[in-house]
Structures are given as C-alpha cells and as structure tokens.
C-alpha cells in the first residue's frame, strides 16, 4: 500500500460529504483553511442528493 505523507498545517478533516459536511468544508475554505472532505461513497451529496424537491421553495435538491 502506498503511503503519501501530507504534512500541511492549517487543515481540517471533515468526515462525511452530505449537506452538513459539504457546507462545513465550504465555510472552512472561506475562513482560510485547507479541507480534506472524506466521503465513503463515490459521490458527495449524501441523503439530500436523493431528494426530489425540498420544502418550502420546491427547489430541486441538486
């Protein structure tokens, strides 16, 4: 197994790429930090990506 060492400072790990994880990651980059967003599945989005429309704006969840 390959071992890539990454010793950057000013980084945060976010575990989970659903709406909470993605929002946290976005805010952290805006606040000046590098983020490792760790998601188990092949795409981010989590449960929200499966929703059709959301209340009350009826916006498409994607």
């Amino acid at each position: 197994m390959g071992q890539a060492k990454d010793k950057k400072s000013g980084t945060v790990m976010v575990v989970g790429g659903g709406v909470a994880g993605v929002q946290a990651a976005l805010d952290l980059t805006e606040l000046g930090y590098y983020v490792y967003l760790v998601e188990k599945s092949a795409a981010i989005g989590g449960a929200m990506a499966q929703l059709d429309k959301t209340f009350p704006t009826n916006d498409c969840s994607l």
């Binding site: 000013g10 929002q23 946290a24 952290l28 000046g32 930090y33 590098y34």
Partner: peptide, 28 residues
C-alpha cells in the same frame, strides 16, 4: 436540512477558532 447547514457553519467556525494561528497556511 436548515439545521444541519447551520450546524455545519457553526462547526466550521469553531474549528477555525481552534486553529486560528494556522489560518491561510494550507490554502491553495
């Protein structure tokens, strides 16, 4: 969803406060 989004921003702020001395060092 709104509460999850709110918590996410809040957690980001708390994490940022914790490591504020390293702010900007990792950015690309």
């Amino acid at each position: 969803i709104p509460e999850s989004v709110t918590q996410a921003s809040a957690a980001a702020g708390l994490a940022a406060g914790l490591i504020k001395k390293d702010r900007g060092k990792g950015l690309v």
